[in-house]
């Protein structure tokens, strides 16, 4: 390999690396430093040591409440979204008529779902006089106050997230199509039922992809902002007040950048710990074909 071509790859990735360093690396390091300061945006930063973190974990009622809500949201949305994505992927893996259309149609919510426009639409759909309550009325079911009750408000923003299952579905679909067909043929010869085939062949061979989707979806769910901000603004009773909303309000409404950075780093630490736990547990349940342990 000539000297020039040896560095070719480096040149290709250089623009991305520069962008990453400027727009992610620098703010990442800066926010860590700022989390130890009292930084009021227009006044400059003053070092305060661990004060922000001590305040966060000992005196901040809103943080603890928001943390609980965020954990509940992640615990709800991630398994539901993965299950739904896998379910649809299995259906779309069959050779059906117009399958291309259905695969595209099911992916569309993922493109739209995170947008403000869809969040506004969601707000209208679940409003007291919205589409959902109108539909319930047709069946004689009394209208539900979706946004007025903490549990149902959480349900509406959870549903919006689950609805955006397309990306996970596409990955599942690709993995399903790469499973060796001979395994299914062998199972058919042995007379295995469809459910048995799914549990003993499909699911184990999908575990690396399930693991990948689990980590990705978990990280994304911890960062959810648009839905609760537009639909409920974190209410009622802060039942949908996820940590990203709290970070945003602390930073851009209260202008308390140091404290907002501390919350962001607390969130980062939580995501990191859960990701490490997921990686650690993966040794016990993820099956890699060709792995020496298998």
């Amino acid at each position: 390999m000539s000297g020039e071509s040896r560095f070719l790859g480096f040149w290709y990735v250089l623009p991305y690396v520069i962008g990453l360093l400027i727009f992610t690396g620098v703010p990442f390091v800066a926010s860590f430093w700022l989390s130890f300061t009292d930084y009021r945006l227009m006044r400059g930063a003053e070092f305060v040591g661990l004060e922000n973190y001590v305040d966060l974990f000992t005196a901040d009622r809103t943080f603890m409440r928001s943390l609980n809500v965020t954990l509940a949201y992640v615990a709800l949305t991630v398994p539901l979204k993965l299950a739904f994505a896998l379910f649809i992927a299995v259906i779309l893996n069959y050779k059906l008529r117009a399958i291309g259309f259905f695969r595209t149609a099911y992916y569309v919510p993922s493109i739209l779902g995170g947008s403000i426009a869809v969040a506004v639409l969601w707000r209208y759909i679940f409003a007291d006089t919205g589409l959902v309550n109108m539909a319930l009325g047709v069946f004689g079911i009394e209208a539900i106050n979706w946004f007025g009750d903490p549990a149902t408000a959480m349900f509406t923003i959870t549903l919006l997230r689950v609805w955006q299952f397309g990306s996970a579905m596409v990955i599942f679909l690709a993995a399903l199509q790469s499973i060796d067909k001979s395994l299914y043929e062998a199972a058919a010869i042995d007379g295995a039922s469809k459910w048995r085939v799914f549990l003993s062949i499909t699911l184990p061979l999908l575990t690396p992809v399930i693991f990948f989707n689990l980590v990705m979806q978990m990280v994304q769910a911890f960062q959810e902002f648009n839905g609760p901000y537009v639909i409920t603004n974190g209410g009622p009773l802060r039942a949908t007040y996820l940590l990203p909303l709290y970070i945003y309000e602390t930073a851009f409404k209260k202008f308390d950048m140091g404290y907002a950075s501390a919350i962001a780093w607390a969130l980062f630490a939580i995501i990191m710990v859960l990701t490490v736990v997921a990686f650690w547990s993966s040794k016990k349940w993820v099956y890699y074909a060709g792995d020496k342990r298998s």
Binding site: R123, Y124, F126, A127, D128, T129, N145, W146, F147, G148, D149, Y229, V230, I231, T232, N233, G235, P236
Partner: peptide
């Protein structure tokens, strides 16, 4: 009641039906 008023979601009073 607060619960009833927020049933329309996060919008301002003048935008409410």
């Amino acid at each position: 009641p607060w619960r009833t008023a927020v049933a329309v979601g996060n919008i301002e009073l003048f935008d409410e039906a």
